[in-house]
Design a protein around this nucleic acid. Structure first.
Lengths: 233, 233
DNA sequence: AATGAGGGATTGTTGAACAATTCGTCAATA
DNA sequence: TATTGACGAATTGTTCAACAATCCCTCATT
């Protein structure tokens, strides 16, 4: 065995993704994604291939590839021979998104008793960090950060499932929900009333009371959903 | 109101998908998908753009688009500057797939008490049909049909969630799992021992005992997972 | 008001071309 | 012998230009 492998080489595997070059299509998708999730691209807007391709300096083919990526994340809808549009959510979509969230998040919490101790600890830590970040942002009146902290909170809840697929599904769901937040009347303060619920859930999961946490979260999501569907009334 | 709308026009909406033309990329993806899920394309195989494009008579660009579709379904993996390969599942993948299934299927069952009666009825019917199809296929010794009936069974379980997203996630998970079935020693009879479990679950959901069904299904999935990971030992 | 025929604009798809990268081969070196 | 480095073939990444197919708006007709 050569002397070069002293054990630290294996750790490099974790950094593989860092140096992974991104395709142009992926980078294009990134800039469009942030524009969409930040609400700077109104739902229903049609995205012209020629126009955007020229603006970003990429060919139509590459741009179409980026469109496919975002369509798969349901941030764009692709209508054959008509073009791609920024996703516009209906009341049914919100209902389904919350149904999915209930299954994912409550399922993660109910699985928590079976996750190994170290992973459970990191999940609890992530939840705690999100709660504290939300509270301090609210104290500073920074409502945008309150929103992102709330997103981080629910993403942290999903960690209890200890499943990459649950993680990804959760990420996609939250990105989709952003499309609704921006069409609300007062998106700035939407998340603020849930800070108390988040804190309460934190005490539950920190104490290992996962079933109670799951039931509390289910009611929580019901309330949020019914508050959200009023946008479409 | 014009006399042309006698009510039957609304029913046409259901057939919209039938006449929906499919892009060539989607059709190419379809033919590749069946080849993969039927096990006629060994995991790890590299799919050459030029070769396959010539064989199917489509340009490289459209073929690449089809590759992206299948990569999103995790049936192919796309390595930058290296090409696309038929997905090869590891033991971790199987573990995660079953973790995801536990959350989806048990979550669907636990939601069943809240689904409206008509949807619950159709779900129970779908479960029953799958169970009976599996049993008659086993009686005829047709193991391939036993496998598809088992897939249909779990897809029917997902119906209790009454959520399109759960449906789609379930469909993707089952398609992925087919990649494992084909590398097993005896894939023909893998599903046969679960016929009794399916029948028992049917009696549970038919009687409205959803919590019992969920717990039974969890144990069921645990057993299947541990049986499946032995393939990688 | 409903129908039908242009016509412009946009998407769907192709083919070719070039740049960038991977991978195998082989010689040079210690 | 094992390692290094350079070379070259093959493949992918990306662009460009072109054409077919389709949508959608306009306008004339009835």
């Amino acid at each position: 065995m050569p002397v070069t492998t002293n054990g630290w080489v294996e750790e490099l595997g974790a950094e593989r993704a860092a140096l992974g070059r991104a395709s142009t299509a992926r980078r294009v998708a990134d800039v469009l994604r942030t524009r969409i999730t930040e609400g700077r691209l109104a739902p229903g807007t049609r995205l012209s291939e020629e126009e955007i391709g020229a603006a970003l300096g990429v060919s139509r083919n590459t741009l179409r590839e980026a469109f496919r990526l975002l369509a798969h994340e349901r941030l764009l809808v692709h209508e054959f021979n008509r073009g791609v549009f920024v996703r516009k959510l209906e009341a049914d979509d919100v209902h389904d998104l919350y149904a999915f969230r209930r299954i994912l998040e409550c399922g993660a919490l109910r699985h928590a008793h079976a996750t190994d101790e170290s992973a459970r600890g990191t999940a609890v830590d992530a939840v705690r960090r999100a709660v504290e970040a939300g509270e301090s942002a609210a104290a500073a009146g920074n409502w945008v950060d309150v929103g992102t902290a709330n997103m981080a909170f629910h993403q942290a809840i999903a960690l209890f499932a200890q499943s990459p697929r649950v993680d990804e599904a959760m990420r996609h769901v939250l990105a989709e929900l952003r499309l609704v937040f921006h069409v609300m009347a007062a998106p700035q303060t939407f998340h603020e009333p849930y800070l108390n619920d988040n804190r309460r859930l934190l005490t539950h999961v920190a104490a290992g009371e996962f079933e109670a946490a799951a039931q509390s979260l289910a009611a929580y999501l019901d309330a949020a959903e019914s508050q959200l569907v009023t946008v479409f009334a």
